[in-house]
Design a protein around this nucleic acid. Structure first.
Length: 385
RNA sequence: CUCAUAAACGUCGG
C-alpha cells in the first residue's frame, strides 16, 4: 500500500497527474489479479512447509472473498494434499477442477504422479499418466523424471526403460535428474553392474556429472557392500573438482560404518569438519547409531553433547536409531539409560520409537519391563500399531 | 522464470 501510494503521490505531485490516474485505474482493475497471485504465493509457502490445514483454510477463505482459484491454486492444493498423503482428497480436487472447466496442465499431472509414486502407489501414478495422455497433455522432462522415480521406487526398472524409450522417441533429452534417478533405480533393483555402466556411459557422453550423481553412485555402491569402490568414486569426484557435501559425506560414513569400518567412518566424520562441511542431524544419527551398534555408550553420549553444542537437538528419529543400535549390541542397560533421558526431555515420543524400545526390552529378556512399556503407551499419547 | 522432478536418515514389516 505504501509503495503504491508513494508512486501515485509522486506522479501526482510532479505534474504527471495523467499518469497517476492511469496507475490508479490499473490498480483498481487489476486488484483481483494481484489478490489471486498473492493467495497462490501464500498457499505455495504453506504447502512447502507442510501446513496442509492452513493451505486448505486459505483455499476456502479466498473463495469466500470472491477470489476464484485458478489452475495454479489447484496445483498447489493438490500438491499440499499429496504431501499430506491425502490422496483421495487430492484426486477429488483434481476431479473438481476438471468439473469447473479448469484444465489440468503438465504440472498438475507431475504433482500427482510424484506424490502417488513417492508413497508406493505406482499403479495409481500410472493411471494418472494414462489420464494425462487421454486428456491430450504432453509430458515434459520433469514429468518423465517423476515417472522414472515412481517406477524405480516400486522396483519396475524394466518398465522405466520402456518409458525412457518413449521419451527419446519424443525427442526429450534426459538430464542429471534422469541419470541420478535411473542409477538409483538400478541400485535399488540390485543391478549394480547396470548402475555402474550407466554412470560411466553418462560420464562418457556428457563429460561431467554433478555432486548428486556422484553421491547417488556412492550410495548405491555402499548399499551393495562395495565400500572400496564407493571410496574410489569419492576420490574421483574430488579430483574432478567437485565438492562433496553433507549428503555425500553422510552416505560414505554410513557405508563405512555398516561395513564394520567404524574407525574409518569416524575419521571421515572428523575430516568433513576440517573441510568446513558441518555434520547435520542425519550425519549425527548415522554416527551415533554406529557407535550404539558397537556398544560404545561413551561415544554415543559424546556425540549427543557435541551435536547439542552445535545446535542440533536429538529428535525421536535420532533416539530410535540409537536405541535400535543398542538393541543390536545387546546393550539393554545403555538403551534404558537413554530412554530415561528421552522421557525427561520434551521429546515427542511416537509409536515407532516405543516399538524400538519394546524391541530392546524384549531382546534383553526384560519381558516385564516390556509389558510395562506397552501398558504405558497410552500415557505417551501413542497407540500400538 | 506465479505451480511440479533426483542423492544420505528411525522400529517392525514388505
Amino acid at each position: 500500500v505504501s509503495i503504491l501510494h508513494h508512486l501515485v503521490l509522486g506522479l501526482s505531485q510532479n505534474g504527471e497527474s495523467r499518469k497517476a490516474f492511469l496507475l490508479l485505474q490499473e490498480i483498481i482493475e487489476r486488484g483481483a489479479e494481484l489478490c489471486l497471485l498473492l493467495f497462490n504465493a501464500v498457499i505455495k509457502g504453506l504447502t512447502n512447509e507442510g501446513h496442509l490445514e492452513d493451505a486448505l483454510t486459505l483455499f476456502e477463505k479466498m473463495q469466500i472473498m470472491k477470489v476464484q482459484p485458478d489452475l495454479i491454486t489447484y496445483n498447489h492444493i493438490i500438491h499440499a494434499l499429496g504431501k499430506g498423503r491425502n490422496f483421495s482428497k487430492a484426486l477429488g480436487f483434481f476431479a473438481e477442477m476438471k468439473a469447473q472447466g479448469i484444465h489440468p496442465n503438465v504440472h498438475t499431472y507431475s504433482v500427482l504422479v510424484d506424490v502417488l509414486g513417492k508413497n508406493g502407489l505406482v499403479t495409481e501414478a500410472y493411471e494418472v499418466w494414462k489420464e494425462m495422455r487421454h486428456d491430450g497433455v504432453t509430458p515434459n522432462l520433469i514429468t518423465y523424471n517423476t515417472m522414472f522415480d515412481a517406477l524405480g521406487r516400486a522396483g519396475y526398472v524394466d518398465a522405466a526403460t520402456l518409458v525412457l524409450e518413449e521419451m527419446t522417441a519424443e525427442n526429450i533429452s534426459p538430464d542429471m535428474y534422469t541419470f541420478s534417478i535411473l542409477i538409483r533405480n538400478l541400485g535399488k533393483a540390485r543391478k549394480l553392474a547396470g548402475a555402474k555402466a550407466l554412470f560411466e556411459k553418462v560420464m562418457d557422453k556428457m563429460g561431467v556429472v554433478n555432486v548428486v550423481t556422484y553421491t547417488t553412485m556412492i550410495t548405491v555402491l555402499c548399499k551393495a557392500g562395495e565400500i572400496d569402490e564407493a571410496h574410489e568414486y569419492f576420490r574421483k569426484m574430488i579430483s574432478a573438482g567437485h565438492v562433496p557435501n553433507v549428503v555425500t559425506f553422510t552416505a560414505l560414513i554410513s557405508g563405512l560404518c555398516t561395513a564394520g569400518m567404524l574407525d574409518k567412518g569416524y575419521a571421515l566424520f572428523q575430516a568433513m569438519k576440517d573441510v568446513e562441511c558441518s555434520p547435520n542431524f542425519a550425519t549425527y544419527r548415522t554416527m551415533a547409531r554406529a557407535y550404539a551398534e558397537a556398544g560404545i555408550e561413551d561415544r554415543v553420549n559424546m556425540l549427543i553433547s557435541e551435536m547439542r553444542a552445535r545446535g542440533i537437538e536429538p529428535d525421536r528419529f535420532f533416539y530410535s536409531s540409537v536405541l535400535a543400535g543398542y538393541k543390536k549390541s545387546c546393550k539393554t542397560d545403555a538403551a534404558c539409560n537413554l530412554f530415561e533421558r528421552i522421557r525427561v526431555e520434551a521429546i515427542e515420543i511416537d509409536t515407532p520409537l516405543l516399538n524400538t524400545m519394546l524391541g530392546v526390552l524384549l531382546g534383553g529378556g526384560r519381558t516385564d519391563d516390556a509389558y510395562n512399556c506397552f501398558q504405558e503407551m497410552n500415557r505417551f499419547g501413542c497407540t500400538p500399531d
